[in-house]
Structures are given as C-alpha cells and as structure tokens.
Simulated scan of single mutants.
Amino acid sequence: MRRLTCLELNAAAFAPFGAVIDGEGRAPESINDGTTQRYADLARLDLCANAGDGAPLIHLYVASARRFPLRLARLERHRRASQVFIPLNGQRFIIVVAPGGPLPDWERMQAFLSKPGQAVSLHRGCWHHGLVALNDSDRFAVIEGGAYRTDTEELDAPEDILLELPE
C-alpha cells in the first residue's frame, strides 16, 4: 500500500497540471471607481476542443467531507475541455493529480492542499481525482465544457493508495 501526502498548492509545482487561480504576489488593477481590485488574467480556459462540444457550463457542487486516510480508487480526465474548481466560501480543498497520456502515471501522482481563497484550473486531459472536500457542504463553482457527461474517462488504481490529511 502506498501513502500520499499533500504538498502546498503553488503555481510552480502545479504548472504541469494546470493553473493556480490566486492573486497573491500580483498587482491588482483598480476598477469600478476604485471600489474593486481586479486581479486579471489568472488562468486561460480551454473548454471547446471540438465544434460540437457545446457551450461552456457553470455548475454548483456541494460536497461532503472526505474521511482520512482516503483511499484513492480511481482517477479521471476530460480530454476535450479544461475544468475549473472555485471554492465559494474561501475554504481549503485537496486536488489530486497525475501526469500521463493515455494512462496516468500512478507513481508520480501528487496531492495539493489549497490555501483559503485559491482555486484551480486543470489542463485539458489532466488526470485527477474527484473533488476532495474537507468540510460537509463545501460549495464550489465548477466551470467545464458542455460535453462533460461524454468527456469523462475513469481508470481504477492498480494498487491501494491512501491519501493522508496534512497536519
């Protein structure tokens, strides 16, 4: 049995899998008569690989807390669209990803723990685990391509992999 621990979510470590959406370290632009600070161009969306994929969609996910250690039974990917997870209450969450092409590289799987207020945009085709919420009723806005129902590929893990909750 293999154990996986969480790393801190940061842009450099997460870059092979997608973008961290966070204004930290960036200079905002003042808009709306100075009442709003805009952190622009934090992530690019890649939501329509094919003309028939349909318009991008926004969903609301209300998640249950996971129990730890969490058995990571499978990974999924979406080959025709990126996917964005935005916590609506500023809560932390865990994103589990793995490099790979037709198959995930299970040995190089990584888990990242977000800081409050961070969101992520996964690259199109990125292998990832389903949403890992830390609290019951955590709410997320999820942006994805219109063909998400037919664009989800799942693969079972070849061995038991346990994700441990960080201290």
Rank of each mutant, 00 (worst) to 15 (best):
A49H: 10
N10W: 01
N50E: 14
E107C: 04
A81N: 14
D41W: 11
D33N: 14
A40E: 08
V132E: 06
K115G: 05
V62L: 11
L60I: 11
R108H: 13
M1Y: 11
Q37D: 14
L131S: 07
S137I: 10
P69V: 04
G52R: 15
P16I: 03
S64F: 07
Y148S: 11
A63N: 08
R79G: 09
R3M: 10
L4R: 01
R149F: 11
A13V: 04
E154G: 02
M109N: 00
R67C: 05
S30E: 12
F93R: 06
E29L: 14
R44N: 13
P104Y: 00
D138G: 01
N50Q: 13
N135P: 05
L75H: 02
I143R: 06
D136V: 04
F17K: 00
G52L: 13
G25E: 03
A65N: 06
F17N: 01
G146S: 02
Q118L: 03
A65T: 06
S82E: 03
R124H: 08
E107R: 12
N32V: 09
I31P: 05
N89C: 13
E107V: 02
H78S: 07
P104H: 03
A55D: 15
I21R: 01
A111S: 08
Y61M: 12
D156F: 10
P104M: 01
L163N: 00
F93Y: 13
L57Y: 04
V132K: 01
L155G: 02
Q91F: 08
Q37H: 10
R44H: 12
L162C: 05
L72E: 02
R26S: 10
V84R: 02
I86Q: 07
D151M: 09
E29D: 09
R108P: 00
Y148R: 10
R124L: 04
L72A: 00
D138H: 02
F14K: 00
L122P: 03
A55F: 12
F85N: 01
L103N: 14
S82A: 12
E153P: 02
C48E: 15
